Amino acid sequence: MNAILRELLYLLQPFCLAWLLLTVWLLRMLWKRLWRWSLLPMSAWLILTTISCTSIPSWLMAGLESRHSLPAAAEMQSADAIVCLGGGVEPSLMEPTGMHLARGADRIATALSMAISGVAPVLVIGGGGYEHEGRFVSEADAIFDNLANYPKLNFEQISLGVCTNTRDEALKVAELMEKRGWKKILLVTSASHMPRAVGTFKKAGISVVPVPCHYMSSFHRLGEVDWIHLPYVGSFELFDAWLHEWIGSHIYSWRGWL
């Protein structure tokens, strides 16, 4: 009974309710044989249903996330530095920590746990910047400002400052490697972003050991995967992340960055 009640309440959520109304409207038009007038709403319904009511977005995301597997412990030995790409936090004036955890916060959690465990002696963090009162606040600086509250950390901390994109991060890391004489880098980023990141770093002359994290696909999580389900707004986040990487990879290839 509770499960049925939860499903009924779920149907009253704005997104799900909008999908139901569109379905009813489309069925009514088809019933009246308004074939020509039903083409646009049918196209909208098909797109909406495919993305929100099936596991196709999750399946697409799983294809990206499966390209690089987690490295064995032996592969990470003797690394010179851990490089964590941005996208995990946003500087905040209100949060007690001075930063708001974003969608890719697993990147920061993974890189920090590796650095604290002594996997490598240096932690390098990239990321973008946010304009405030005429100046840009670095995502990486916000993280390291917070880490200053923990004085016993036994690893060096390097901020890449405000980076424009993944290529900018790769070029700045390449400069660090040449200056410091580093040979082995552990690259931490979201599993879906890892294929583009590895290709970008390779193009910049850097060979990395990929450490993927932040697995978004339901195929990489606990529990059974329901291929058909009620409209779920989270599917749009998955599709958006997949589309971002798909478009990004083509643009990087076109610009010669991959």
Rank of each mutant, 00 (worst) to 15 (best):
S159V: 14
G98N: 14
N165Y: 02
M99W: 04
G98Y: 14
Y10M: 04
I51W: 07
A148K: 00
L230P: 01
A115C: 06
P210V: 14
S38R: 08
T164I: 08
E131C: 15
V24N: 02
L9E: 00
G86A: 09
A102M: 08
D168Q: 07
K179A: 14
A81F: 11
G248Q: 00
S218T: 06
H214T: 10
R103I: 12
C213P: 00
V89Q: 03
P91F: 12
E65G: 11
M29N: 00
P231G: 09
E156K: 10
W35I: 15
R255K: 10
R167S: 03
V119D: 11
S43F: 04
G88M: 13
S249C: 05
G128E: 06
M76D: 07
A79N: 12
P195D: 04
A142T: 13
S217R: 03
A72R: 15
S253K: 15
R107M: 13
A241P: 01
P231A: 08
W254H: 04
R196T: 10
L40Y: 03
S138K: 09
L27A: 01
Y215R: 08
F239T: 08
L30Q: 07
E133T: 04
M1F: 00
C53K: 01
G161A: 14
V137R: 13
A105I: 15
Q157R: 09
G199V: 05
W182M: 06
C163S: 13
E245S: 14
L8H: 04
D80P: 02
K172H: 07
